[in-house]
Amino acid sequence: MDSRTQDGHRPLLAATGVRKVYRTGSVEVTALRDLDLTVQPGELVGVMGPSGSGKTTLLNCLSGLDDIDAGRVEVDGRDLFAMSDAARTEHRAHAMGFVFQAFNLIPVFSAAENVELPLLLTGTPPREARARATAMLERVGLGHRVGHRPSELSGGEQQRVTIARALVARPAVVWADEPTGNLDSAMADQVMDLLTTLNRDEGQTIVLVTHDEAIGRRLPRLVRMRDGRLVSDTRPRPPAGGTPRAELVG
């Protein structure tokens, strides 16, 4: 199966017929129902839907954190579920970055040490890892906080550290699951400003789950979920003279 589009370009993400079922004893709950989604390089895509609609499950399956029961997921040209667990973990380390609602920073590490950790785990020499971590912290506005531990940072600063950590390995895609969920509105705006700037200025591909309608309205593309399906795909920022497009996709 070739996931190239009609113009010959391969999407960064191509998910086809993805199905995920959770089983507890004799009880089965279908979390994703034959779901299709493509994301092109450089897109910023929001995923919204009511609680229990499958948003986080979708991110976990698209990134290979969770197994799937049917379908196919390609990220950066690789079929995730045709790989061994070890190969999928390695692919994730090199091609993906993660930002979660919980910051998941190591409390005894400084900001720089938290950011450089993914590089060290993939074999980057320590001096290069530290230089890249410091540069990325400067990029997210924390060049003056490189030596501070998480307890010495505000919530917004901690989330910017996690964004720096997600970006430091130059991933093909960043998955962000409720990245503003633990922040007040002012800090949430700062984090979203940073993510949209990174997408606009550097072409960073980002897939972002949110429950916040105000954030959804800021995004150049928004897909909505219900009962494990994608029910709409909207691009609310058309070119000049255009009109918003809403397309039923599943």
Rank of each mutant, 00 (worst) to 15 (best):
Glu113Pro: 02
Thr134Val: 15
Ala133Glu: 06
Leu117Thr: 11
Ala129Lys: 11
Thr134Gly: 06
Ala131Ile: 02
Thr134Ile: 13
Phe109Glu: 06
Glu128Trp: 00
Arg127Val: 04
Ala112Arg: 11
Arg139Val: 00
Ala111Glu: 07
Ala135Asp: 13
Glu113Lys: 09
Met136Leu: 07
Glu116Arg: 15
Ala131Asn: 04
Pro118Tyr: 09
Arg130Lys: 14
Gly141Thr: 03
Ala131Leu: 12
Arg139Ala: 14
Glu113Phe: 05
Ala111Val: 02
Arg130Ala: 09
Leu120Thr: 06
Leu117Asn: 08
Thr134Glu: 15
Pro125Lys: 06
Arg130Asn: 01
Gly123Asp: 06
Gly141Glu: 12
Arg132His: 08
Arg127Ile: 01
Ala133Ser: 12
Ala112Asp: 10
Leu137Tyr: 05
Ala133Trp: 01
Ala111Gly: 09
Glu128Ile: 01
Glu113Ser: 04
Glu128Leu: 10
Val108His: 15
Ala133Gln: 05
Ala129Pro: 04
Gly123Thr: 03
Ser110Ala: 13
Leu120Asn: 02
Arg127Gln: 13
Glu128Val: 09
Glu128Lys: 13
Thr122Asn: 10
Pro125Asn: 01
Pro125Ala: 12
Ala112Val: 15
Thr124Ala: 14
Thr134Ser: 14
Ser110Tyr: 10
Val108Cys: 14
Thr124Phe: 03
Glu138Asn: 13
Thr124Glu: 12
Leu120Pro: 01
Ala133Cys: 09
Arg130Pro: 00
Glu116Asn: 08
Phe109Asp: 08
Asn114Met: 11
Ala131Pro: 00
Ala129Asn: 10
Phe109Tyr: 15
Leu120Ile: 08
Glu116Tyr: 07
Ala112Ser: 14
Leu137Gln: 02
Val115Leu: 11
Arg132Glu: 10
Glu128Ser: 10
Ala112Gln: 12
Ser110Leu: 14
Ser110Ile: 12
Leu120Tyr: 03
Ala112His: 07
Arg127Thr: 04
Glu113Trp: 03
Pro118Arg: 07
Glu138Ser: 15
Ala129Val: 01
Val115Gly: 09
